[in-house]
Design a protein around this nucleic acid. Sequence first.
DNA 1: CGGACAAGTCTACGATCGTAGAGTTATAAA
DNA 2: TTTATAACTCTACGATCGTAGACTTGTCCG
Lengths: 194, 194
Amino acid sequence: MTSETRSRKRDAAATRAAILASAREVFARSGYDGAGLREIAAGAGVTAMLVRRYFGGKEQLFAEAIAAANSAPIIATEGVLKDEHPGAAIAQALVQITEPGAKPLDGFLILLNSASSVRAAQIGRDVIECAPQKTVAAMLEGENVEQRAALILSLVAGFQMMRQAIGLSALADSDPKVLENLLTPLFERLVKEV
Amino acid sequence: MTSETRSRKRDAAATRAAILASAREVFARSGYDGAGLREIAAGAGVTAMLVRRYFGGKEQLFAEAIAAANSAPIIATEGVLKDEHPGAAIAQALVQITEPGAKPLDGFLILLNSASSVRAAQIGRDVIECAPQKTVAAMLEGENVEQRAALILSLVAGFQMMRQAIGLSALADSDPKVLENLLTPLFERLVKEV
DNA sequence: CGGACAAGTCTACGATCGTAGAGTTATAAA
DNA sequence: TTTATAACTCTACGATCGTAGACTTGTCCG
């Protein structure tokens, strides 16, 4: 349903990519257990059996989908931490990314909605531990960089969850500037630290 | 499986309570979609059909379970905000409650694991909006109390998610004191504000 | 002691899930 | 144009889901 589900000549690579894109969408919307292979396949304009043929099974498809979704990280960390005022930069980026109308990031939604599946949660842990946390931690200085990186991610994830997934009105309907001003000193503190 | 699934005489009230307790457990572990009526019933030592008989259906059972689980709030807010150093008190309570060995709070887990279900998420929003946020907001002073209350909950929820649900090692394996010291100024800022 | 009514179970339905292998069709080289 | 092969679909299995009404059994009052 993403772009061109219609009229795709028998092109294995393109079909595979279309299935993966559809999987990202459906996994993000319904989580690992809630997503059906038939629904994913329909989104790519094929049948469920082709999915199995290309990816081997649901687990492998999920692993590839979550890896792909995570290539666009939970929060765009490039540069934002090197900013002159990193706290403000993170706050602004976070508020902007999660604005009520915007589409939530697949990577986060897949993790959130798949939390109930033991297998999916395990994959999720590996993904978070490897990619975003290491990235953030590498850019910090001082003591307890790993803990501070994890807390930055906690705040980012918690804010996303409350604002987008739950739709908490105090966050969804508020002036972005107010939220930015409240978040900035928190991130500032975590980035710079004593 | 909680306590006494064996040898309970034909007592409607006790059976109903046992089913509700089992439902809390299973919903917390597997989420709305992942939980099966048969599994819930087995945990209470009855059959699935009795669940339907007492609660009418899965949705009603879920609504009652989430309401019951939320009577023990996501974070114990009583008193903690009136502490002399509320930021430190919240941080300490949060770190203590989420210590790796401890059992996560049902209320939070049910919400987290049921996020993929549209219907369940709607119930979750109402629960969060009504109970914890209003409680926290009522105890704050100054400007933007609702936004600040929502951000406190965001940080609490994000920390719980990363530490317990995901099991992020930087949070799960770290010295509690370090985490407390990092969290304290964040909560302090949100509680007191400018 | 014995019936009445609540408490609880049995069997089964239709739907949907992931998976499976055999079958069909379009494409590209000869 | 013929043909080989990759691309793709069809039909179906076994399991599990929520739901449903008929059935059985334990408990308490008279």
